[in-house]
Simulated assay, not measured.
Amino acid sequence: MPLRYLDCSFGYRTGVPVLDSLTVEFPPGSTVLLGPNGAGKSTLLSLGASVLTPLAGRVVLGSLDSASKKDRAAYRRRVGWLPQHIRPVPGLTVREQAAYAGWLKGLSKRRAWDRSAQALDRVRLTESAERRSHELSGGQLRRLGIAQTLVHRAEVVLLDEPTAGLDPVQRGVLRDLLADLADRMSFIVSTHQTEDLADTYRQVVVLDRGRVAYQGDTADFLAPAADGDSAERRAETAYRALVQGEA
């Protein structure tokens, strides 16, 4: 089911809106969220994860409202959140941290523990299950973060700059992982990395100064660029034509 933002407004300071009456729908599948620094991407995802609450408007998944007290627990079980920085929980092993995330989402301790093994297998961390989570590399921590969303079987996973700070090999592993998981959940991924858009994402949303500058299929997004250019160059050309720069 789609994640919808309906006339959403939010600002961190009075009179300075980051998002102003924004309406956008993210359909099932993989969507890449592009935009310059200050465009409101992290705010948009934080609202979708119910980390933040709209000052006006609603964020809904099906019939569930992110800000409704009666809906919040069910909403959070269906929406996974991967912020820019995944923090290891002191003293916990990798499997314990994955299980802990499931327990926080409302699973029993036994079910969270059982599902943690399956989740770590999906992200290729089984061999690291008994290591302390603080011993993981940056790329492994991102994969642990995704495992934490798999434990409670989220339907929609929001990832804020998941490849930031990763080397090319780690970025490739993460892209392969998202492709592998695309058959069972939807992703909305905020990123500055424009390579492999056509291979990784079905839809592109470009956010600029708190408004949607573009939304559509990846092929349509790339179409205006020159056919002879590389895929990355075509994406950069299409992107630059739509945005005004940092807010």
Score class of each variant (00 low, 15 high):
residue 81 W to K: 08
residue 245 G to A: 04
residue 54 P to I: 10
residue 90 P to V: 08
residue 165 G to S: 06
residue 39 A to D: 02
residue 91 G to C: 07
residue 74 A to R: 15
residue 24 V to P: 08
residue 229 D to T: 14
residue 174 L to R: 02
residue 78 R to V: 03
residue 114 D to A: 13
residue 113 W to E: 12
residue 127 E to M: 14
residue 47 L to C: 05
residue 225 A to C: 05
residue 51 V to T: 07
residue 246 E to F: 13
residue 201 Y to W: 09
residue 194 T to H: 12
residue 139 G to Q: 07
residue 184 R to F: 11
residue 200 T to W: 06
residue 29 G to W: 03
residue 121 D to T: 10
residue 172 G to T: 02
residue 22 L to S: 02
residue 81 W to T: 12
residue 29 G to T: 09
residue 188 I to F: 05
residue 198 A to I: 07
residue 232 E to T: 14
residue 239 Y to K: 04
residue 212 V to Q: 00
residue 180 D to I: 02
residue 103 W to V: 09
residue 225 A to P: 01
residue 7 D to P: 10
residue 196 D to T: 02
residue 87 R to Q: 13
residue 123 V to I: 05
residue 202 R to S: 14
residue 61 L to R: 09
residue 114 D to V: 13
residue 146 I to F: 08
residue 8 C to E: 04
residue 124 R to P: 06
residue 28 P to R: 10
residue 114 D to E: 15
residue 51 V to W: 07
residue 2 P to L: 10
residue 243 V to Q: 04
residue 224 P to V: 05
residue 52 L to V: 00
residue 132 R to C: 09
residue 154 A to Q: 01
residue 98 A to M: 06
residue 140 Q to N: 03
residue 79 V to I: 15
residue 191 T to R: 00
residue 47 L to P: 08
residue 197 L to G: 00
residue 110 R to K: 12
residue 240 R to K: 11
residue 115 R to S: 10
residue 43 T to E: 03
residue 132 R to I: 04
residue 107 L to N: 03
residue 76 R to Y: 09
residue 242 L to R: 09
residue 63 S to T: 11
residue 231 A to D: 12
residue 12 Y to A: 04
residue 53 T to F: 15
